[in-house]
Design a protein around this nucleic acid. Structure first.
Length: 667
DNA sequence: ACTGCCGACATTTTT
DNA sequence: TGTCGGCAGT
């Protein structure tokens, strides 16, 4: 008798002959997620439970099942994350995985708008504004309102940016944002609403979109144009979203639209690790997912493969302090390890000294610098340490904080490219014109008037024209060579370098950045590409320094906790565990905000594989002088049997061959 | 008009 | 920390 096996629609793939032995490589929860077929699924993946691994294998599995790589959409938090996943997936399976469409929400939205934006009146050649560009536009729009409210404190451009952006991302009116976060500006509510309209109008007139516009307009487009929604939906047979806990309302709506045809969505995240409320993320989104998307199943990953049980015990204990119940308890099969340590230092300086010495001590034990991370709440919390590391010659990279592409000197360089790409960009014109000696805001705007067509015979003033000569040569060159990015950037650098030297006291550092920037810019196909990539995927603060230290030893990692998301190291220091820093002084009035700070500490703690050390200085310096600081309230509540206090002893002998030894006191 | 200098001020965290 | 606004000098 002959047999023919009929394939079922879903779920029956376990018997298939896969190239990859999924069942052997994954634990049962991971396996379930990887094999999940059609419909919506939520994967709650605790820290270190192999979330990325699960996503990677699911990609591979789908492709093995014949799903077209291009019909899979993988949305991640950063572009780097997407790229890494696709790279890893192609190692476990094959090159096909690289053809999966992966990236950030902003990137994907920009793509949709370039393709279909015309349908709602968007010119597809729009330029994208990054955070600081947006602030410059706001600065421009702000003038009128500032003058109108003379004598009163009117919000700064950065404050305006957070207010307006919060209104967009949370989709609430400005007055509500003011009530929640900026009650001191409540009386400006009306003006700010108007300012917002001016702001929108200005961006429209210049054909510019900021980060928020990309999301909002994509949503508008897909909601108002049924056929486009269908077209986009058809392309997305499978949608996967990483870090779902950090997604805001707007993004949740977008996912619904992206997956409208197939309904195949897998969201992955951890409600205990939601740390982006400040930008509108709402960790209840992840809890709502099952209802909202009609999820077939919620899969929980709880076995941790990263940390020792001692570290997990402490992390679990931190979560107990939350009023929100996180139904989660991480466990591991790893061997026992050291108790996490709590180190009190007399000053911030001693804290830095301790870190530096202990890092060297670890290195002697065979733990390389780059397997050690120092984490902190605010970017500036590492300044003191950075000075100390530099002095002791310990190489480091820093993640988080200001982006290189937002530094003034890089913005200057980019402005030259911008005016070529978008000659209507008044802000950039003004920026590059006022760089020229003898040209201030007034002459700059006269020159711009003149360029726009010399209305009413405004005299071009020969004197200025001469000064601008060099600049116009440069711009002509860029225009002609727009496909040769490295020639353009090189030319700008040569033109700008003398200006840079005059403009900044710390010009040597900045000139070095310029040189590094030439290298970074090289691989781009044309100047518009360069601009777009830099705004959608800004280079991390010290990425440039990394190049320098590459020949040397792998550097120690310094990072804000936010930027450490998803990463892991053998040893993790969490420094400045002081009340007012973590939790931040800005959060103590709000229970929700406070709880987010707790989650932040939880994220930091769960980055450690073997050793976890909290440090805090007992005396902090602040403006006028010194004051006593208290250890973080979160840390204070942890019982001693989970967190061992260390005793620092300073070696009294000055002529000892080894540096001062800091000892651990076993109690 | 433009430049330079001084003091005030704001500040989490990121696409 | 660096940026911004005001003021004085060229």
């Amino acid at each position: 008798m002959k047999t023919f096996v009929l394939k079922s629609e879903s779920g029956q793939n376990a018997s298939k002959n896969y190239q990859i032995k999924y069942a052997e490589l994954l634990n049962s929860a991971q396996y379930k997620a990887v094999m999940a077929q059609n419909g919506a699924y939520l994967v709650i993946a605790g820290a270190g439970t192999g979330k990325t691994r699960t996503l990677i294998y699911r990609l591979a599995r789908l492709i093995e099942d014949g799903v077209h790589p291009q019909s899979i959409l993988l949305l991640t938090f950063t572009r780097r994350a997407a790229k890494e996943m696709l790279d890893r997936a192609s190692t476990v399976l094959d090159e096909r995985c690289k053809r999966v469409r992966g990236g950030t929400f902003h990137q994907y939205c920009a793509q949709i708008l370039r393709e279909h934006g015309g349908e709602i009146g968007i010119n597809p050649t729009f330029t994208i504004l990054d955070a600081s560009d947006t602030q410059e536009v706001l600065q421009h729009v702000r003038q009128t309102y500032k003058e109108k409210n003379k004598g009163q404190r009117f919000p700064e451009k950065s404050t305006l940016y957070s207010i307006i952006s919060a209104a967009f991302n949370k989709q609430i009116p400005i007055s509500s944002v003011l009530q929640l976060t900026y009650p001191q500006f409540l009386h400006f509510a009306e003006d700010l609403e108007k300012l917002k309209l001016d702001f929108i109008e200005y961006k429209e007139s210049q054909n510019m979109l900021d980060f928020d516009d990309l999301l909002v307009l994509t949503k508008d487009l897909l909601q108002s144009k049924e056929h486009i929604k269908a077209q986009v939906g058809l392309k997305n047979k499978y949608v996967m979203i990483d870090e779902y806990q950090d997604i805001n309302r707007l993004q949740a709506d977008l996912i619904k639209l992206f997956s409208s045809v197939s309904g195949n969505v897998m969201a992955v995240g951890d409600d205990a690790q939601s740390i982006y409320a400040f930008r509108g993320a709402d960790h209840s989104n992840i809890l709502r997912f099952p209802d909202e998307f009609g999820a077939k199943e919620v899969i929980k990953l709880e076995q941790n493969f990263r940390s020792t049980q001692q570290i997990l015990d402490l992390a679990n204990n931190l979560l107990l302090q939350a009023t929100n119940k996180y139904d989660k308890k991480l466990f591991t099969l790893r061997e026992e390890g050291d108790l996490p340590g709590l180190i009190k230092t007399s000053s911030e300086n001693e804290q830095s000294d301790f870190i530096a010495q202990y890092v060297l001590h670890l290195r002697e034990q065979g733990i390389p610098l780059n397997d050690v991370a120092v984490l902190f709440r605010n970017s500036r919390d590492s300044y003191d340490l950075e000075v100390d590391l530099a002095r002791k010659g310990i190489p480091y990279v820093k993640y988080g904080g200001q982006k290189i592409s937002e530094a003034a000197h890089i913005k200057d360089v980019l402005a030259h490219i911008r005016v070529v790409v978008n000659p209507g960009d008044v802000i950039s014109w003004s920026r590059i014109l006022t760089l020229i000696e003898g040209i201030g805001p007034k002459s700059a705007s006269e020159l711009m008037m003149w360029m726009r067509g010399a209305r009413d015979g405004v005299s071009p003033s020969k004197n200025y024209l001469q000064k601008v000569g060099q600049l116009s040569e440069l711009l002509a060159f860029i225009k002609e060579k727009s496909m040769d990015v490295s020639a353009c950037v090189e030319a700008i650098k040569n033109y700008y370098e003398p200006i840079c030297r005059k403009k900044f006291d710390d010009s040597p550092k900045r000139v070095k950045d310029l040189e590094a920037f030439v290298t970074i810019a090289k691989p781009f196909l044309n100047i518009s590409q360069l601009l777009e990539d830099l705004t959608l995927d800004p280079i991390d603060g010290t990425a440039i320094d990394t190049e320098k230290t590459q020949n040397e030893e792998n550097p120690l990692v310094l990072s804000t906790i936010h930027s450490a998301k998803g990463l892991e190291w053998n040893t993790v220091f969490i420094i400045q565990c002081v009340d007012g820093i973590i939790p931040s002084g800005y959060s103590v009035d709000s229970e929700d905000a406070l709880e987010e700070e707790l989650r932040l500490l939880y994220v930091a703690a769960t980055r450690a594989k073997d050793q976890l050390l909290f440090t805090y200085p007992i005396i902090k310096e602040n403006g006028f002088g010194e004051y006593f600081s208290n250890p973080s309230r979160f840390i204070q509540k942890v019982p001693v049997n989970l967190l061992e206090p260390w005793n620092l002893l300073r070696d009294a002998l000055p002529d000892e061959s080894s540096p001062d030894l800091l000892l651990k006191n076993e109690e």
